[in-house]
Amino acid sequence: MIDARGLLCPMPVVMVQKEVKKSAPATIEVLVDDPCAVDNIERFAYNNGYKAEVTAQGSEWKLTLSK
């Protein structure tokens, strides 16, 4: 699970990109609390062949990216 809470864009999506480059996992879970990060990671997922599922958890979001 990538914990990108409290990080401003583009840090959350950079963390996801690093994970994809490192091991191209089939599933990636990311925790964010910035609405802009949700948009960016969803777009990154779409551009890189992942499906993104977004679950709101109070003031945070959990994104599950899967191939």
């Binding site: 999506v13 802009c36 948009d39 777009r43 990154f44 551009n47």
Partner: peptide, 17 residues
């Protein structure tokens, strides 16, 4: 729209977005 003059060039180079 999250308009950002830096973000446009940065994301295009770094994320191909």
């Amino acid at each position: 729209a999250r308009l950002c003059m830096v973000g446009g060039i940065r994301d295009t180079i770094m994320l191909k977005d």
